[in-house]
Design a protein around this nucleic acid. Structure first.
Length: 286
DNA sequence: CATCAACCCTGAGAGC
DNA sequence: TGCTCTCAGGGTTGAT
């Protein structure tokens, strides 16, 4: 479910540097976020939510460690602890919330309950059970295969063009391949391709320099807008963002293209629903 | 390499 | 109402 902007929004909320944190903080007037909090008892209600190590070791090793820093890499949340690194991937339906330990009852789909040494807790809720948490000495063990961050200044138009030039695949599945570029998912890929006026089935290697440059700019623009709007909230996983109200093509099949007024179409690409404007995004070279 | 189907899961909505 | 079918912001695996 969450893509880069949603994960970034959650990371900011967990750091307490985000206005949204107020509504989720155990203490509306107290300190925000979970930075500095120390893990106490951790309960796991669905064992497979823990990728590594096995759940009992995961809980035991976490006990007593404080959270030093929280960052994001691709779609991963990265918790730097005193002795370990904890990674959480929300996959399709995962979410994290912070609340008082005692007040609220647990929800049906709460999979991991991280109790802190104080009176707060952080809860990993995940309806579809696809999300995973890791506890590692070296986070590169999992993050090492990821492609560059879309906002990495070293990712220049030149560099991006040469990356695309080496790939024969269709552009959409390539952009969604986390080894190629980290953080893009189904929504933001459709939005970026529309903004750059590139057909989702266009071969990556067929994009010229100017198209690569405008695609990179479009990727950064839609991600920036998503972050500015606190991500998109659709289906059951509402987390305060409203980017869903500004989709140009995603889930707007049958509606008018905001650029040309033609009808937006929906096709399947690599088993993913794909939305585009056939007029603005003509297939040039297949 | 790259593609594809199956799989991991639950739930919402459409159509009958 | 209840059934069946499709679809959902992600990613891995094994076959081809």
């Amino acid at each position: 479910m969450p893509e880069l902007p949603e994960v970034e929004t959650i990371a900011r909320f967990l750091r307490g540097t985000h206005g949204l944190a107020i509504s989720r903080s155990p203490h509306p007037n107290g300190p925000l976020g979970v930075l500095g909090r120390k893990f106490a008892d951790v309960q796991v209600t669905w064992q497979r939510s823990i990728a590594e190590p096995a759940a009992p070791a995961f809980c035991a090793r976490l006990y007593g460690q404080s959270i030093l820093e929280i960052t994001r890499r691709g779609k991963f949340l990265v918790f730097q602890l005193e002795k370990d690194w904890m990674l959480i991937h929300l996959r399709m339906s995962g979410d994290l919330r912070v609340e008082p330990r005692d007040k609220t009852t647990l929800g049906l789909h709460d999979r991991i309950i991280f109790n802190f040494a104080d009176d707060a807790r952080m809860v990993f809720n995940d309806t579809r059970k696809f999300g995973r948490a890791w506890l590692l000495k070296d986070p590169q063990q999992v993050l090492g295969t990821l492609g560059p961050e879309p906002f990495d200044p070293e990712l220049t138009a030149d560099a991006f063009h040469s990356m695309l030039h080496k790939k024969k695949r269709a552009i959409k599945p390539l952009l969604m391949d986390q080894k190629f570029l980290a953080g893009m998912g189904n929504i933001y890929t459709d939005e970026a391709l529309h903004l750059a006026r590139v057909h989702p089935l266009e071969k990556a290697s067929s994009l010229n320099y100017s198209q690569a440059e405008s695609l990179l700019r479009a990727i950064r623009e839609v991600l920036t807008e998503g972050i500015r709007r606190n991500g998109a909230s659709i289906d059951w996983a509402y987390r305060g963002g409203d980017f869903q109200n500004y989709f140009r093509v995603y889930q707007r099949n049958g509606e008018k293209c905001p650029l040309c007024g033609d009808k937006i179409e929906r096709i399947m690409v690599s088993q993913r629903g794909t939305h585009f404007c056939p007029s603005c995004q003509p297939l040039e070279k297949g």
